[in-house]
Computed example of a mutant assay.
Amino acid sequence: MDARKEGLPRNARFSAQQPSLVSLTPFFLACATYFLLWDPEGPPSWVGALVKCLPVLTLAGFLQSSSGGARTAALQVALLFSALGDVCLIWPQAFLWGVLAFTQAQLLYIWVFGIRPLRLGLLLPILLVSLLFFGVLLPHLPPDMVLPLTAYGLALNTMLWRGLARGGRACWGATLFAISDALLAWNTFIQPLAHGRLLVMATYYAAQVFITLSAFQGRRLKTN
């Protein structure tokens, strides 16, 4: 397969072997467990943290079926940082540590997606939308969170640019990740949304599975 058809950098070392759809079963079961057991009124707990990060951990394990080399390994590490961020966000006092973990994950996603094709024309709409949203968000942020969230926003927008430029599953994953974070920011700092946590986590888990599947170059997953 020509890497250019998938928007992949020529030197990307992803696996062309398609995993079976059945191999994603642990991820779907973990997601179902989270949505069934999640109690929005319950106190933070390590059990809740484990249930929340388990879907992302199963995706890191899922990538063991890939022989994609350094980029796939980096994607696994990014998923582990995401899982760490999930745990930190359970406790309000660890929020900034969660932001730091997710920032590291975004930087790894950027490296995994690569710099080619460049597609600089994507930057302007991303910049305009992000500045508009941040302008609405800024008055609601505590002063000590402005700089960390600005840094995270830059990493997120760069990841979105590279995901859109690469196309395919990376495009879907990057877009859903940005939507999930926008919903989380609105729900946390501006105004609670109806079914806010459900919307945030559904788009977040969908984003992570699309980003994970971007490690496989083929267009379809096997059904068995």
Results as ranks from 00 to 15, higher is better:
C53V: 12
G218A: 14
G61V: 13
N11D: 15
T58W: 03
K222F: 09
G163C: 07
A182I: 07
L57I: 07
F189A: 12
D144C: 00
Q106F: 05
L199N: 05
L54V: 11
R10L: 11
F35K: 07
T158P: 04
L50T: 09
I90S: 10
S65Q: 09
A94F: 12
S214N: 09
Q76A: 01
D181Q: 05
A74P: 00
Y34P: 04
A194R: 09
P143W: 05
L164A: 14
R162G: 10
M159T: 01
P92F: 07
G121Q: 11
P26C: 01
F216P: 01
P192V: 13
L154W: 02
R162Q: 06
V47C: 04
F95C: 06
I211P: 01
F28Q: 02
L147M: 10
P26Q: 05
F113R: 00
A70W: 13
G153W: 11
F189K: 10
K222G: 13
P19Q: 14
I179P: 00
W97Y: 11
G218L: 10
G69K: 03
L54Q: 13
L137T: 12
A30P: 06
S15P: 00
H140Q: 11
E41T: 07
G68I: 06
R10G: 13
P139V: 05
T58K: 02
A73R: 12
R162E: 03
L108M: 14
F95E: 08
L118W: 12
F133Y: 06
R162N: 05
R4M: 10
S20K: 04
R116W: 15
A12K: 09
G42M: 03
F95A: 06
M1V: 06
T203C: 00
